[in-house]
């Protein structure tokens, strides 16, 4: 916003683009052993602002003996302006998500968003490959929706501990994606096997861009393959947040920019970043 500011437009008003709203919960149910899905009724004008890779900052309720204070960031799992619905997929891990799990149909949840910078799909990227593990798939799911809308070919490589926690496979298939599953249980999720699968895709079909989220090992692998074949990529990253808007500078991570390392805010410059600039953690 600042960078674009010129002397001539200093009086120009800024239109608020971030919504703070109480949304009604349609459902909030367990979808498998580890994950819950929350469906909220949301206004069209809010949903039309959403982009794949963006997040909402949720005011988790004080329920069930849980007293979360700060908001919790959560990536958008699905947004449907026509149906008036927003979906989140989450794993119950701490005070905030435990509190969220107590909410039921008809309850309200205060949300702030959409926030941050989402994924980019350049006009000339025809074959997109996403590689993700665990809950990282929730963040990448709306990318499949976007690829489908834009008529791009998508291959989703989904990694998990065992078959029964492979999420979103049906979802990706329903959007016409080619889905490859690898699991620890079957011994197919090793980095060596992933590398062979990806090299195979590059050799046979050509790959224009990579997308990932959630795994350090997968990031390192994709950085190496991306550099070797000169294929661009993006990664969605997480960090503890306070304000979610860019004011507090709590959620920084280090990135390589040319010859130096700089701190960028995950909430504002991210949560989606250039894959080669990201630093493994």
């Amino acid at each position: 916003m600042n960078a674009a500011l010129k002397l001539g437009d200093v009086r120009e008003a800024i239109k608020p683009v971030v919504f703070e709203r109480d949304l009604q919960i349609i459902s909030n149910v367990q979808v498998n052993g580890e994950y819950r899905q929350m469906v909220l009724k949301a206004p069209r004008e809010m949903l039309e602002q959403c982009r794949a890779g963006q997040f909402f900052h949720l005011l988790c309720p004080q329920l069930g003996g849980e007293n979360p204070y700060l908001r919790r960031p959560m990536s958008i799992y699905g947004f449907y302006p026509d149906k008036g619905e927003m979906h989140f997929l989450y794993k119950v891990t701490g005070e905030g998500t435990r509190a969220l799990a107590h909410l039921g149909a008809g309850d309200t949840l205060n949300v702030l968003g959409p926030l941050g910078r989402g994924f980019t799909i350049a006009d000339n990227w025809q074959h997109l490959v996403l590689v993700a593990r665990g809950v990282g798939l929730a963040t990448l799911a709306p990318l499949a929706l976007e690829a489908n809308r834009l008529g791009r070919k998508l291959t989703a490589i989904c990694s998990a501990r065992s078959d029964d926690v492979l999420m979103s496979v049906h979802y990706f298939r329903s959007l016409g994606a080619n889905v490859v599953t690898v699991t620890d249980a079957e011994g197919t999720s090793s980095i060596e096997n992933l590398e062979a699968i990806i090299e195979g895709l590059i050799a046979e079909e050509g790959v224009d861009a990579f997308y990932t989220c959630g795994s350090n090992r997968i990031l390192r692998l994709l950085q190496r393959i991306g550099e070797k074949h000169e294929i661009p990529g993006e990664i969605a990253l997480e960090q503890q947040m306070a304000c979610g808007l860019g004011m507090c500078h709590c959620c920084v991570r280090p990135f390589r920019k040319e010859d130096r390392v700089v701190n960028l805010r995950v909430c504002r410059e991210g949560p989606v970043f250039d894959m080669q600039e990201a630093m493994p953690w």
Binding site: N67, P68, Y69, L70, E95, Q239, Q240, M241, A242, C248, H249, C250, C251, V252, R253, N263
Partner: peptide, 23 residues
């Protein structure tokens, strides 16, 4: 100034602590 190492924020009962370090 780069500011302090992360985590820069944590929650305590009904309040928060921060150590941003004036980036």
């Amino acid at each position: 100034r780069d500011g302090n190492p992360t985590p820069r924020v944590c929650e305590v009962s009904g309040s928060m602590l921060n150590s941003i370090g004036i980036p």
